[in-house]
Amino acid sequence: MASHTAVATKAAAHSHPGYGELRHHFESHEQQKDSATIGMWVFLLTELMFFGGLFLAYFIYRQWYPEAFASASNKTDLWLGAFNTTVLICSSLTMALAVHAASKGKRILLVGFLVATLLLGGAFLGVKAYEYHDKWVHHEIPGDHFECEGCHDEVHTPLFFALYFGMTGLHASHMIIGFGVLLVLIWQAWSGKFTEKWYTPIEMFGLYWHFVDIVWIFLFPLLYLIDRTGRSLL
């Protein structure tokens, strides 16, 4: 009896154009949507633990070698970092507004906000590339040719830079992957694939993008804001 109703609902939902495709193994759009949401959050859980290993290494070495971390951190450009954080937060806002526009079924607005997100993300990576280049020029990339002018602890300073490149690099690679997805979404949004009843991919991508933003919210103080007063260096 219950299964009969389920079949009926499914048929009704199928004939409804606005909901997008209902995959064969789901009973209802609601179930399909819920599954996607839970799946995305579980995925973010693994992402969190993925970055977690690096955060652990960071915490340990920073506690052990505070001077090395302080002097190395002062080699980063504080105001450039703050500016870049601002850029990323702006892209998070445009992403949130994109989801909002999608939920209202405003196609042009949705495309506009997605493009804005893409451009702001690009600006962030541009600044990042400039910073990397700067480190490259100053031989501050750990490895065989590492040198650090005026750094206090020769042995442990490379650890900071190893973590700096490990963490920001992993973060940047997440943004680059996000770019790929974003381009597809922009194309789909432009061709009118999403409706106010079905815009799950936009929403899921929003979660991903905000997660990447959160990682940066922690990376900024951890990498750029260590002992800017120079206290432990005196």
């Binding site: 601002t86 937060i89 702006c90 998070s92 806002l93 909002h100 103080p221 750029y224 007063t229």
Partner: peptide, 26 residues
């Protein structure tokens, strides 16, 4: 969204600015 956004931006610059001030202990 706009309220949250404003808070995020303000806090970013606040935290950057505070980091340059000696609060008495690192």
């Amino acid at each position: 969204y706009f309220a949250v956004f404003t808070a995020l931006i303000v806090l970013t610059w606040v935290t950057a600015w505070i980091s340059t001030k000696d609060l008495g202990s690192s």
